[in-house]
Nucleic acid binder design. Sequence first.
DNA 1: ATCTGAAGTCTGGTATATCAGATCCCACAA
DNA 2: TTGTGGGATCTGATATACCAGACTTCAGAT
Lengths: 236, 236
Amino acid sequence: MIPEPTGSPRSEAFAKIDPKFQMTVRDHVHRTLRAAILAGRFATGEKLNERSLAEQFGVSTTPIKEALRQLETEGLVEALPRRGVIIRFDMSWAEEMILARAALESMIAHLAAKRIGKPAGAELTAIADLMAKATLSADADSLVSLNEQFHEHIHRSSRCGYLAKLIERQQFYDASIRRVIHMDPAERQKALEEHTAIAKAIVTGDADLAERQMRNHVVRSGETYLNIVFGNKKDI
Amino acid sequence: MIPEPTGSPRSEAFAKIDPKFQMTVRDHVHRTLRAAILAGRFATGEKLNERSLAEQFGVSTTPIKEALRQLETEGLVEALPRRGVIIRFDMSWAEEMILARAALESMIAHLAAKRIGKPAGAELTAIADLMAKATLSADADSLVSLNEQFHEHIHRSSRCGYLAKLIERQQFYDASIRRVIHMDPAERQKALEEHTAIAKAIVTGDADLAERQMRNHVVRSGETYLNIVFGNKKDI
DNA sequence: ATCTGAAGTCTGGTATATCAGATCCCACAA
DNA sequence: TTGTGGGATCTGATATACCAGACTTCAGAT
C-alpha cells in the first residue's frame, strides 16, 4: 500500500505519505466501535448513548456523532431520529455480509479475469505459489498476509475502485480470527485449492469460472468464520 | 411502506408512524448533496467547503459534517484528513454502482426464489401482470411506481434486510429519470419481458435462473440509464 | 530570477452550549 | 387497581467557539 512517487527526480527520493494514514479521533472511534460491534460486544437492539460514549473515549460528542453516522451508513447501527442509535448486528446480519461479499467479490473476480494483463497475471500466480509454500510449512501468519495480498491484487487487477471499497466494508472478522482459521490444516488445504483455482481461472481469462469459484470460496470460508465467531449456534 | 399496527385493539386504530419518516437537517443535507452529486453537479476532485455549505443551507456546520460523513461511507466523496472532502463520482463510478447493484440484486433474487412463499409469489405475479397492463397503456407513472414495488417485493421475499439496504445505496438515478426511460416504448417492452421472466423464475423457485435474469436486467437497464445521465459520452 | 521561510489566512477537527423532543416518575382521580 | 397527565429529566440535534494543521503570500537572501 505504499504509494509510488510520481516521477521522482532522484532515485533516493522518499515516497509521499498518503494523507489517509493520518488518524483522527472520529476514525479511531469509528474503528473501535465497529470492531466492538462485529466482535459481538453489543446485543442487537441495544441503545448507544452519545454522551456516555464520549465520556468513555474521553472526547467530546462531535467525533462520536460522526463515527455513528459512518456506522449507520455501513448498516451496523440504526438511527431513530431524535431517539438515538441502536445496534443492528447479529448472526443473520453477518450471514448477509458474507453473501454481499460473495456477490461483490465474484463480480470483481469476473472483471479481473477480463482485464488482467500478463505481468499482473504472473504476479497473481506468484502469490498463489507462495501460498502453496506457506501452506506446506504451516505458516499461518504468512497465509493471513498472503490472503490479503491475493484479494487485494485481484481488486487492483479489476480496476474497480468503488467495488473494492464496498467489499472492504463487508468483512466482519479481523486478522486475529483469520489467524485462527489458518491454524487448521484441513481448512488451510481447502483454501489453497480454492485460491489456486481462482488464480488459474483469472489468469487464463475464464471470467465465468473465476466468478463461480470466487463466490463459492467466499461463501464457504465465510461459513467457517461464521462458525468460529458465532460458535455454531444456529439459534434465533 | 406503512408500518402495520402490532395487534391493534380496535379496528379503527391508527398505525404508528415510523420514526424513520421524521426529517432532520442532516438528512436533508445528505439527500440534497447526494442528489446533486449523482446529478453530476460537481466535478470529480472538486473540493467541498464545510463553512460554505453551511452558509448555503443556512445551518451550522455540525449537520453538514455528519452528512459528509455519510457520503464518505457511501463512497461518493473522499475525505482527506485535515484537508477536506473531495467529490468522487463520474461515469466510471456510476458504472461500478450498476455492477454492484447487479451483483447484489441478483444475489437477493436468488434467495427470494428459494424463500418466497405461495401468497407472496402470487403477489409478485400480480405486480408483473399490472406491469403488463401499464405497458400496454403506456402509463409511465404507474410503471415507475410498479417497478419500485416489484423490486421491493423481491427484497422482502428474500428476507434480507442488510442486502436490501445495501442495494438502496447503489442507485444513481432518481424517479424523474426513471420516468424518462419508461417513455420509450421499446425500453418499456424490453423491461416488461425481463420483469415477467424474473417473476416467473422466482415464483417457480428456479434460483439460478432468477439470479442470471436479474443480473442481466440490472446491467442492461443500468446501461440505458448511464446513457441518459452521461449522454453516451464514453470519454475519459 | 529563483528559492526559502516566516507570517497571515483558511479550513477541518474538536469541544462546549443550548434547545427541544422523548422518556420517565409519580401524584391523583376514577 | 388502573389509567391519566403534568412535570422533571434525559438525550439527540443543532449552533457556536476555538485550536491547530494546511495553504498562501511575499519579503529577503542567493
